[in-house]
Design a protein around this nucleic acid. Structure first.
Lengths: 142, 142
DNA sequence: GTTCATGCAAATCGTTTGCACAATG
DNA sequence: CATTGTGCAAACGATTTGCATGAAC
């Protein structure tokens, strides 16, 4: 991984630009493999290595977040503002929530434990709109 | 993975009993590999396969939780009561917090999004007591 | 005695990396 | 032209699985 400390001697590339574009126009927190499939439409010979390398660079530049929920693959998100997530038990889809981030929680942690929390993440779990109350096992997002 | 739906035709085994015991007397949310090392003290020929298989069974029986935080390996925990976690940025150690679980959050998700959240997890991030404010890069827990 | 659990090794999956060549600044 | 990015394939680390044998019920 390149360090953020140095002058970030990154060059631009069509591939990386496109990956960021895809992430900006997609709000499903895609996996590397999903991005790879989309990328092949424009760059038929693109490799997974390139996808991962660019995701790492974008994350290093702070343009993208890498998130790895319990059990699921790594997902990527161009929404770098702090926010909470809803994860569907059935199909694994992830939805951003409009709940305001509650900084007071970090303070409560300190009161209770003495530990200084600088941030926190919340994942809510349940069925998403399309999986509903049904027992249907949705197709796992890959 | 065996299903919970059937009659759970699990037999007991010394190995599984010992793994559960280790998890009960350990509150550091160990990795499979840590458990493997401890297991070898009692069962010199135990294999990782056995460790993982038993962890899966214990999780299926609801006796153990498998938790996989962002970037870290899977960790295992015999404390199955809902609780929040503090994750150290520096050394990766995980601490259970005494903060009461706030069920009202699930309701707020519904108000805001219409999604029905059945549960939620929170991970707080910061430096643990031993990593303190120091820039020391603690040894990553494996 | 039937079935489940084990140990071993090989397989799988997501991700990373070394290398020779192409693209960028 | 000095260096970074790419495509390819091989390497990697965590986890899973197939198989023959041993333990549990």
């Amino acid at each position: 991984m390149k360090s953020t400390t140095k002058g970030s001697r990154y060059r631009r590339s069509q591939q990386r630009d496109r990956i960021l574009e895809l992430l900006k126009e997609t709000h499903t927190h895609p996996t590397a493999n999903w991005l790879y499939d989309r990328m092949r439409e424009d760059f038929p010979n693109v490799s997974m290595g390139t996808v991962y390398r660019n995701l790492t660079v974008l994350a290093d530049q702070g343009l993208v977040n890498r998130i790895g929920f319990d059990g699921t693959l790594d997902r990527f998100d161009a929404n770098t503002a702090p926010h909470y997530h809803f994860v569907c038990d059935a199909c694994g889809s992830i939805v951003d929530l409009d709940l305001p981030v509650d900084e007071a929680l970090n303070r409560r942690v300190r009161e209770v434990s003495g530990l200084i929390a600088r941030s926190h993440d919340i994942q809510f779990r349940g069925r998403c709109a399309s999986c509903g109350g049904k027992r249907t096992r949705g197709v796992r997002f890959r």
